[in-house]
Design a protein around this nucleic acid. Sequence first.
DNA 1: AATATGCACAACCGCGGTCAC
DNA 2: TGTGACCGCGGTTGTGCATAT
Length: 379
Amino acid sequence: MGRSPCCDKVGMKKGPWTPEEDQKLLAYIEEHGNGSWRALPAKAGLQRCGKSCRLRWTNYLRPDIKRGKFSLQEEQTIIQLHALLGNRWSAIATHLPKRTDNEIKNYWNTHLKKRLAKMGIDPVTHKPKNDALLSSDGQSKNTANLSHMAQWESARLEAEARLVRQSKLRSNSFNQLASPEFSSASTSSMNKSAAAVAAPAPPRCLDILKAWNGGLTKPTEAGGSGGVGSVSGLGGELESPTSTLSFSENAPPIPASGIGESSTNFIEFVGNSATCEGGIMKEEGEEDWKGFGNSTHLPEYKDGIENSMSFTSGLHDMTMSMESAWTPESLRTGNEHVSGGTFLERFTDLLLNNSCDRSFSDGGGESDNGWWWWWWQWQ
DNA sequence: AATATGCACAACCGCGGTCAC
DNA sequence: TGTGACCGCGGTTGTGCATAT
């Protein structure tokens, strides 16, 4: 469809924002919230178009924005999510609390993309440019599975991103207070309407990615039998690393109200930050995701999945297709290669595990390339 | 010291999706 | 149901700073 530019009015200022303009915008949003962006500039006394104001607010002035260098953990998250979602920056941003989609996009374009390219990895497909590495049968099978998983996760992550957006909207309209982190921030003087746009707690998908990668790739630390054992450790009820397949068959039927009034469920799901910690928020310890199969944790995720699944039939269809593609047998088959380790397995393993050992990275900047260098050496 | 080049990031532009009328 | 307004997203451009020559 498209539409004509909103800022073609004569006299609209463009270009960098001045501190005075920032102050005006902040003051207005503090006072009135950020309702209609189109009407906002006139009311706030700004010679800007609404779009420009919105951009300035969401990308710069918003109180819940973390600025500065991306951590290794954040880098890994971006890379993994980009592999799944592609350039869906807003969806990726929902899993990186306090980072904006614009910031992530810029960081990808200026740092990560180049780094991957340097390493001979296609930043679009996330595969090595020399695909000979993946030519053996088992690896092909694993790659096929990974592709299916990626498709499914992609759909689900997108759904989650939409949930977050919905949650944002709703919390905005109800003027609810945001997360404790926000309320304790230096900008605590911001009123409720401003606080309402603070980022919600991150969804749990990173838990799943980690559990998936961990289950597939991580040998048991107690000297167990490796990947297969790890998967079984996730529990018989969790045959798929993403835990969805068995749910689609065994889960109790979703109540009609759960579908018809799904938005309520979504908000509960998204807002339940307590169970989201296992993801990117938990940089220290990282213990939760390892215990993903824990019966106390599982139902919560299960609920989330069900809610997500009720969100879109497309997602459900994807799950159905996954059931044929990702069977327990295929999982086990895939894990036969764990001892040797396929490229993708080891790659994601490194992505996830090296983050715990900061000595690999961050201190050395570009020169030592951190875990990338480690991975490169392994090649 | 002056200029050229590269880099990082903020901001803009145009389009698609959604919603109200 | 069709239309237009609004919002949000992703791609692109512009600007300022840092480094190299």
